[in-house]
Design a protein around this nucleic acid. Sequence first.
DNA 1: TGAACATATGAATAACTGTTCATATGTTAT
DNA 2: ATAACATATGAACAGTTATTCATATGTTCA
Lengths: 127, 127
Amino acid sequence: MATEVFTHLPEEHDHKLTAEFARDHLPSEEELFDLAELFKVFSDSTRVRIMCALSQTEMCVYDLVELLGASQSAISHQLRLLRTSRLVRSRRVGKHIFYSLDDDHVSSIIRTGLEHLRHTKGEHDHE
Amino acid sequence: MATEVFTHLPEEHDHKLTAEFARDHLPSEEELFDLAELFKVFSDSTRVRIMCALSQTEMCVYDLVELLGASQSAISHQLRLLRTSRLVRSRRVGKHIFYSLDDDHVSSIIRTGLEHLRHTKGEHDHE
DNA sequence: TGAACATATGAATAACTGTTCATATGTTAT
DNA sequence: ATAACATATGAACAGTTATTCATATGTTCA
């Protein structure tokens, strides 16, 4: 009379139906590809640090070299990537080229990411 | 051969000062590293598609295989990564193992990313 | 029990990515 | 024009990563 335990349920789970449902509610394949490309830019610690720094203040290349302790070449290469991804813009002042964020979404994405980290850090501290 | 090098005239822009300023206002090196690690998970189109699908509905592995047209092995490998990153969780029902998002921040990050894409897409359509 | 199904996993590989090194381009002052 | 400075860039190399293949584990059903 107690609860009867079903060791197996005859649930018919329809893959094709579920897949179809999800497909109808998903962004286009192309958009999801672009999205991954966007996050790829955020997926390197040198680049995140650059973006984070630029969210504080405009900086020239050598400032970033000083700040991050990376080689001038490395920074320059990463800045090019950020430039072609339209996440930063640059303006020349004499010998210097100053970089700044091109878009408010950049810091927004970084902020959300940090929020997530801090949140889950508090949740499961152990392990 | 200690050549006496004249350090050039003071410029209007001080690298060390700017770097110092930014350093004081930056998250810790460790946190920025973790942040990059987090975004790394979002930086593959297969994984983004998985997460996006799971933000709609719980799905089992084969649903995802159907939906994404990738091999069962590939999906499984990516799910493991998502699992160990604590971005998805799983529960077993008979033969199936159902996956779902483990955290609201996941869809939040995806949403912000998509927002950025759509925004900038509209801004500069040309080139 | 064995057969069929659902998922996981280790190893191998091909493709990609970030850094370094060497060098080039562009700018300013002498 | 030359030197010194600031930045950019191509090539090469080492390290990483996503997929595939083969196989293993776990579950249900006859």
